[in-house]
């Protein structure tokens, strides 16, 4: 079975871990007006500005190629970061609270035909942050876009991470199953 992986690099994970212990100030992103979704988001703390963005990668599967969103950390252009800080709406939920933990949500989508595995797509689709009084998460809007959305909740279970939608839908012969795994990075 062909396995395609699209996961956060070690360097990206290290940058996320650097946020632990930081006091959150606000979240913003490129072009944000009323709604907190963007192709590039910034987590701004008292001491750090960490950019989390998404790009499109073209992946090779048996019989077809498809574009997928990939989360990146620390790869944004300085001009985009400056524009976001200068022009975009800022969201101050949980401002002043310490970031305590960072978790990654990994999705594994498996295609089977007549019960036989054809391919598997493993991707990191969301990053969860625990702060003193709650949680927030940055997640890919869907598997094929480069847009990230932000959700807030009082606890991890209540975080409404959008199902990472895809163009793949099961029918009588082809089945697509998705499993999700959350793991802490430190």
């Amino acid at each position: 079975m062909k396995i395609v992986e699209n996961t956060l690099s070690e360097d990206a994970q290290n940058q996320l871990v650097s946020l632990v212990g930081q006091k959150l100030e606000y979240v913003t992103g490129l072009g944000i007006k009323r709604f907190l979704a963007s192709a590039m988001l910034l987590i701004v703390t008292a001491d750090l500005v960490v950019d989390i963005s998404a790009t499109i990668v073209n992946e090779d599967f048996p019989g077809f190629r498809e574009d997928f969103g990939r989360i990146r950390v620390g790869d944004s252009l300085e001009s985009d970061i400056s524009a976001a800080q200068r022009e975009s709406t800022r969201f101050f939920k949980f401002s002043g609270e310490e970031i305590e933990r960072v978790l990654i949500r990994r999705s594994t989508m498996t295609k089977t035909e007549n019960g036989t595995g054809v391919w598997q797509y493993v991707s990191d689709i969301a990053i969860h942050f625990q702060v003193s009084s709650g949680w927030f998460a940055l997640s890919l809007l869907n598997h094929h876009d480069q847009v990230l959305t932000v959700t807030y909740a009082a606890n991890d279970e209540q975080l409404e991470i959008p199902e990472t939608d895809s163009l793949f839908e099961s029918d009588l012969f082809e089945k697509y199953e998705v499993s999700l795994d959350d793991f802490e990075i430190s």
Partner: peptide, 26 residues
């Protein structure tokens, strides 16, 4: 919709309707 740009100087845009529905153009 709220219309946002793509990063990295790339052309393209996405339209956001209250974080419920979306359209993106590349």
């Amino acid at each position: 919709a709220d219309i946002g740009p793509m990063p990295d100087g790339k052309e393209g845009q996405f339209a956001n309707f209250s974080n419920v529905t979306f359209v993106s153009l590349r």
